[in-house]
Design a protein around this nucleic acid. Structure first.
Length: 275
DNA sequence: AAGACTGTTCAAAT
DNA sequence: TATTTGAACAGTCT
């Protein structure tokens, strides 16, 4: 479920459902999911209150009352469910936080790519992948000047550059294609060949598109039912991603699909030409 | 039934 | 040394 808008939607759902809940038991059925010792993970969190949930990029930060934080990354398919204790446990559930009020917060992940790591609140920067993260994609944080400077130093294609969380956080495969379609830039364009106008369009569309997607509750690609995460509606606003063969909404040319940096990449061969 | 898949990391190549 | 490419992770679905 996870690009920034989806992770933010999950964060909001968790805030409204489980923030303030006391954890009475922690079970880990797939220890590889936890970076570090799962015994310590269980011990430190049992009896604590989950005070609030923050987000940094695509990482969720579960804040506990004893000043420990669970850094949770959903990767490709991670999901959180809230269920009554007696409800049957869904297949692919790997971590269960039993709450004192008779509910459970369950982490479910078909492909087991997601990870959780326990750190002391305030020392998140000791986690490498967190320390290196670029700015949040907001007007306040995401500086065009810095972005353009970094692009000029790179020879690789713009699409994989957008997926690199060190430039700006939150973009994944879907929004990368959408942002480039909106910006009329070919996904294979080398970063250092982008004009400042093109870079500006990419910068502005990144901020705009991600915030719109957050408002829409994210994009639901693989349909699934779930307790609280009302499925998002942004998939109805997609122009390029998953639209292979369909007419480009701007010029009617069929959308093409290629593979770039190991990822399916959708673009309009008429609107998005390498200059 | 081989290939695709919303993401990241690590090793190998350049 | 730094950047870039490609495999790997694991399971389901088409």
């Amino acid at each position: 479920m996870p690009e920034l808008p989806e992770v933010e939607t999950v964060r909001r759902g968790l805030m409204s459902l489980v923030a303030g809940s006391k954890v009475s038991q922690v079970e880990v059925s797939y220890p590889k999911m936890i970076i570090g010792a799962s015994d310590e993970f269980k011990q430190r969190l049992t009896g604590q209150t989950l005070e609030r949930i923050d987000r940094r990029g695509k990482f969720l930060l579960l804040r506990f009352s004893n000043e420990w934080t669970v850094i949770s990354h959903l990767r490709m398919e991670g999901k959180y469910f809230v269920r009554q204790v007696d409800a049957p446990v869904e297949k692919h559930t790997h971590v269960i936080f039993t709450l004192a009020d008779g509910r459970q917060l369950r982490y479910n992940d078909v492909r087991k790519f997601g990870r959780m790591q326990l750190v002391q609140t305030g020392s998140e920067q000791t986690v490498k992948s967190l320390a290196k993260l670029g700015p949040e994609p907001t007007a306040a944080e995401f500086s065009f000047a810095t972005f353009y400077e970094q692009l000029q130093k790179k020879k690789k294609a713009i699409k994989p550059a957008l997926l690199d969380q060190n430039l700006v956080v939150g973009i994944g495969n879907i929004y990368a294609d959408e942002i480039l379609w909106l910006s009329k830039v070919h996904p294979a364009t080398p970063c250092n060949q982008l004009t400042s106008k093109q870079a500006q369009a990419i910068h502005d569309n990144t901020i705009e598109e991600l915030s719109k997607a957050v408002e829409a509750g994210g994009t639901t690609i693989r349909s699934y039912t779930d307790a609280f995460e009302q499925t998002g509606s942004f998939q109805f606003a997609l122009h390029a991603y998953g639209q292979t063969g369909k007419p480009c909404p701007r010029c009617q040319t069929p959308i093409e699909k290629i593979v770039l940096a190991q990822r399916g990449t959708h673009f309009c061969p008429h609107c998005q030409q390498v200059k």
